[in-house]
Nucleic acid binder design. Sequence first.
DNA 1: TTTCAAAATACAATCGATTGGCTTTTATAG
DNA 2: CTATAAAAGCCAATCGATTGTATTTTGAAA
Lengths: 339, 339
Amino acid sequence: MDTGKVTIHDIARRLNIDSSTVSRALNDSPRVSQKTKDKISEMAQSMGYQRNLMASNLRKNVSNSIGVVVPRISRHFFSSVIQGIEETAYNTGYSVFICQSLEELERERNIIKTLVANRVDGVLISISMETSNYDHFQLLNKQGVPYVFFDRHCDIVGNNNVIINDFKGGYDATKHLISKGCKSIIHFSGPGHLEIYKNRLGGYKEALIDSGFPFKEEHVISSKLMESDGIGIIKSLLEKGVEFDGIFCANDHVAIGAIKFMNNLGIKIPEEVAIVGFNNEPVSNVITPSLTTIHQPGFEMGIKAAELLIKNMKNQNGIFTSETIMMDTNLIERNSSRR
Amino acid sequence: MDTGKVTIHDIARRLNIDSSTVSRALNDSPRVSQKTKDKISEMAQSMGYQRNLMASNLRKNVSNSIGVVVPRISRHFFSSVIQGIEETAYNTGYSVFICQSLEELERERNIIKTLVANRVDGVLISISMETSNYDHFQLLNKQGVPYVFFDRHCDIVGNNNVIINDFKGGYDATKHLISKGCKSIIHFSGPGHLEIYKNRLGGYKEALIDSGFPFKEEHVISSKLMESDGIGIIKSLLEKGVEFDGIFCANDHVAIGAIKFMNNLGIKIPEEVAIVGFNNEPVSNVITPSLTTIHQPGFEMGIKAAELLIKNMKNQNGIFTSETIMMDTNLIERNSSRR
DNA sequence: TTTCAAAATACAATCGATTGGCTTTTATAG
DNA sequence: CTATAAAAGCCAATCGATTGTATTTTGAAA
């Protein structure tokens, strides 16, 4: 079957030499003379040769690519991480497969399978909200594909992780509200099985206790942290007559929903209720009042995660190490808590 | 070299049959008996076999994948288009390579090369702001890789495009401002060589003329449409003493910048200046006042673009057709122009 | 039991690039 | 002019799956 595409054999035939010499020349091997190299690369150029990576990779048994699995690329945080990953990958000659689980476990499973079938050399994963079962990652172990979790990780030991210090983020956010005089602080938490939300909650709890405030179960409300959840939660809190003067939200979206709704009700932010988000999404600086939030170094995280993965990919003497890199957050004070 | 990965040959050896039978069985060929198929798939399962797509694709001379090139995945519009593309691709069995040019021509060039080297079966492109030279797309023609432009297209005939009716969008936005009583409307335009901005500008012009207003060169200001540009442009307009009571922005970001800056100056929106954006980015509904904008059906566009591409990929009898699908926009009225 | 088409399976080439081993060419020294 | 080591290049196997052709097996009819 003639595909119309030029191969090293075509070049070899034209120059009346062997295809192995062409291959070596194009790879700048010392086993080919400069004169021949020049002749070959000129011919390759003029014939419009493009190396077939599928063939090359098959032979070399690598793919020179890494897979990235995120819940959604549209989330600012994830797209900055991806930026960082691509930066490192680009500099080290890897190409990047970006995949979205859309927060669905089923898709996450399929993605892992496809990545394995495509023989990626490594995988970077931030798990979906639905992911509470980790069996599908065993496929990576079985196939000897190194992988690193970033941000949303699993509570399994022996993994490689690059994570945010969510505990400190939650702690700082809560302490900040306390320092602003809040006496009764609600926490909008995420799905309970996700480590990051457990840790943010943990930080919240400890900050309360450290400051001599009681921790109340009923002050923690879990949801999927969508904008609409913010509205619903505020509504039901008011209906139940729960008193509060501060909210720490586990992400910015749910905070935005809450702010919009409270703005409509005429509840004054930050005077009556101060609010802190998490993620530093671009919207957080656009809403009125602007939202105090916890910044996560997404770009740097991407770089670190890719570096850790590549380190593991090179270290293919069968010895897998496990390492967890924790990255620091910082609080950005804006008007939603400035008083 | 033993890679530890199971191949059809390993399965064949274990069952004492030929690897071709294993291959046919796993592909559910009628040439293999049901009994053998069962035996093989059971063994494949238990040995943890995963098809090597690199080998399979090499042999079949396809990759079952399409490449997508966008300026940035973090732009809401592009991520919705990608969602649509993935939807279609997923349903037709293709996997998707997502790549970001980051608005740089150089990266766009490299991406095209890498995609070609990876032998993608087709490419979907939305060009970068720097792209005014189209030579690198010739590589796709030379290699016989079909491609479709979406949103940001080239002004070359014979291409396949799925585009927004930018002219109508610009026309509607301007007409809307006029209907709200604006007498002097400024247009924040994008880089002049991009078709989409030319067309939005064209719509603006026609709407003015249709309504008996003069079109003034000095009312059109071009920039890269970043948030910071919005601030800068307003500043310089005020310094120059240009009078205006309406702004039509070629994207939402530049509009956000302008709104923030005018809010700070105490210029009342929409009373003193009404403003309309373009893209319906999520922030447009978060800023105060909320931004009237032109919605583009990103998701649907992704579906259409992928469908058109796949149609072209199948139609590989050498006859290339060219088709341009134009998608309609609609104006979303919000507070920045409600009066 | 033989016959023979149909069904099932085996053989071998192939996709395009890479690479260890072997042969030819070249250049230098004796 | 020959010997010989180094340089250059060729040969052939290989990566793993697919597929056209050839061969064997099966089962049913004669």
